[in-house]
């Protein structure tokens, strides 16, 4: 790919398998191949969107990238450091540069900690600043994400969903990270609050020059936030391209189906939905060959069995998993 010095994160052949054990000896009898060989990078200051249906491995990938999970194979380089197999103590000093915001702020914030403590916690862990400096930083962060100053003494339950997500964002931002992994940050929010939080994320990126990995299942939201978009299906990235390109010129059949399924908020728009049959197959026993061709029962599916399905650059910056059935 391009010059790697501009990459904040690069991922090579990353696999995240979860063993399934059984029998008397608890031997591994199978594995859930949640992430099964993905390659991509994120440039400094850019937003990479990651979309796909539930169960395709988006969140697992996000968690593996910030090393909340130990990858099975492959490598993750963050700012030129190989963090794939670092121990948690080695990782700790690096963690201030990559932070994560979770989907459901009601679950990811400790309900017994006051907002001030929650937002200050990353600073304490990173041993940054003395108490008065930390307090100043917390106050600044809360103001920056649009929360009232008296929020410091309040508890998460006293806030609405949108405000709680702001707390989650403030908490991730206190240590001035370079990369923010946002796992469905707006999925739990109402329409009018969603646009407020999206605007906030865009503003913060402009101000601090952070990179985002933006994981979501709402394609309109992802398109709005992202510079490039990766489409994931059953543990693999099937297409990756600049955001406008992927919407105007999708090449993989799965991307096309996903795009056509979005209901347009316009009653005069025509309905040309490709209705996909069935669900995402199980990652425990994925079909041989092209998993999507198998789902839709593509006539050329048989041709993909036993073939290597390479991830190829078909136009500048436009990568696609080549297979006989899903890509023309």
């Amino acid at each position: 790919m391009s010059d790697s010095s501009s990459h904040i994160l690069s991922v090579r052949d990353l696999k995240m398998h979860f063993p399934i054990r059984g029998g008397v000896m608890m031997k591994q009898i199978a594995a859930v191949k949640a992430v099964d060989g993905v390659n991509f990078h994120i440039e400094k200051g850019e937003t990479l969107g990651l979309v796909g249906e539930s169960g395709c491995g988006k969140s697992t990938l996000g968690k593996a990238l910030v090393r909340l999970l130990d990858p099975t194979a492959g490598s993750i380089h963050f700012n030129q450091h190989d963090i794939t197999h670092m121990s948690q103590s080695q990782l700790r000093p690096l963690r201030q540069d990559f932070q994560m915001v979770f989907q459901d702020p009601a679950e990811s914030l400790d309900s017994r900690m006051a907002v001030g403590e929650l937002v200050a916690e990353p600073l304490i862990i990173q041993k940054l600043g003395k108490r008065p400096e930390r307090q100043a930083k917390v106050a600044e962060m809360l103001r920056r994400v649009g929360l009232p100053a008296n929020a410091i003494q309040k508890f998460p339950f006293e806030f609405s969903g949108g405000q709680r997500q702001r707390i989650g964002i403030a908490r991730a931002l206190t240590v001035n990270p370079d990369l923010l992994v946002l796992d469905e940050p707006v999925s739990a929010l109402d329409v009018s609050v969603l646009s407020q939080v999206m605007n906030l994320l865009l503003e913060l990126q402009r101000e601090f020059g952070m990179s985002y990995l933006f994981i979501a299942h709402d394609l309109a939201v992802v398109k709005h936030m992202s510079d490039r978009i990766a489409v994931m299906y059953l543990g693999k990235i099937v297409e990756l391209a600049p955001a406008d390109e992927i919407y105007q010129n999708p090449r993989h059949a799965y991307t096309k189906a996903l795009l056509s399924a979005i209901p347009e908020p316009d009653p005069t728009a025509s309905k040309n939905r490709v209705i996909l049959e069935g669900d995402v197959p199980s990652p425990i026993d994925p079909p041989e060959g092209c998993a999507f061709g198998h789902r839709v029962g593509h006539p050329k599916y048989q041709e993909s069995i036993g073939k290597d399905l390479p991830f190829e650059e078909i136009a500048p910056g436009h990568w696609v998993q080549k297979c006989p059935c899903c890509v023309d």
Partner: peptide, 16 residues
Amino acid sequence: SIPRLDAERKSELTTI
């Protein structure tokens, strides 16, 4: 305020 596919990317959304 809803993000639309045909809107300009990364532009500021109208909010309530």
